[in-house]
Amino acid sequence: MKPFAYVSAPDVATAVRTIATEPNAKFLGGGTNLVDLMREDIEQPDTVVDITRLPLTEIEELPGGGVRVGALVRNSHLAAHRLIRTRYPLLSQALLAGASAQLRNMATVGGNLLQRTRCPYFYDGASACNKRVPGSGCDAIGGFNRNHAILGTSDDCIATHPSDMCVALAALDATVEVESVRGLRRVPLADFHRLPGGTPHLETTLEPDELVTAIEVPELTAPSSYRKVRDRASYAFALVSVAAALEVTDGVVSDVRLALGGVAAKPWRARQAESVLLGTPATEESFRRAAEAELEPAVGRPDNAFKIELAQRTIVATLRRLSDGSFGDGSFGDGSRA
């Protein structure tokens, strides 16, 4: 690991001032991604600003029925919180489907939003990778790409965003609150992560000196759930995942939110599928048509083309369960088991 100066920020003002004035500085949350990347010399900050002592650890109910979550709330605490378990089962389930209990005890909300891809070529300094070294090429495109993206890719990068939590937040229309020396700003989660285009090294719309201080999630009344499919039953990143909320009135879809994980460089809000579904009978046939519409632009590669069908089936299965009412009590069903 390259040597760095360490600063522990006691308050938000100090944190954003330090990041703005120290050249090549980075915030440090639970460290579960940044420490790993620093050890591999992929991240080489000169100064590390530890934000784990910031007082951003509250989970509060908002007047309009939503919830506000401080950026330093740990993933395990968020998943276990009564408000999250009862009102947003998809968010609690998504968090619990991620990483391991030890890692969830360390990982913060802010760090989870900003975690970087698990593309093996990104991690391997000897490989060509446009995300790590812009302009160097992409060894994943002609290489081993089982875990890679099928939607929103470019000729420069086919990496996925690995977060489970963010998929639930995308379905929930969450907002990210960020602060810097220039003041406070709110970014819809949908605009937070970027698709690669010609600049895969730019992963979010966050400025390097901006601190994520909170996320806000609006009220959700529809039953919801999160389903994750992976190569082993636990402690593995998603091949495909689906976060869904579905309300059926008189047999017709009256509200639906759908987002996909493991398929793109950002949590993929499935707007196309939602528009096909809204107002149609809540049947297997509608679910299938909606899933097909969403995956229509997907591009598969030799190792990951299976994801196109897998994503469709997972969408259908998740919606079917929600419409059957097996998740209708708004709490846990079979969790993340695929």
């Binding site: 276990a80 389930q93 619990l96 069903g333 969790g335 993340s336």
Partner: peptide, 10 residues
């Protein structure tokens, strides 16, 4: 402490 896991049934 009542913390759930991914397989906790209601």
């Amino acid at each position: 402490a009542g913390m759930p896991s991914a397989v906790t049934e209601p």
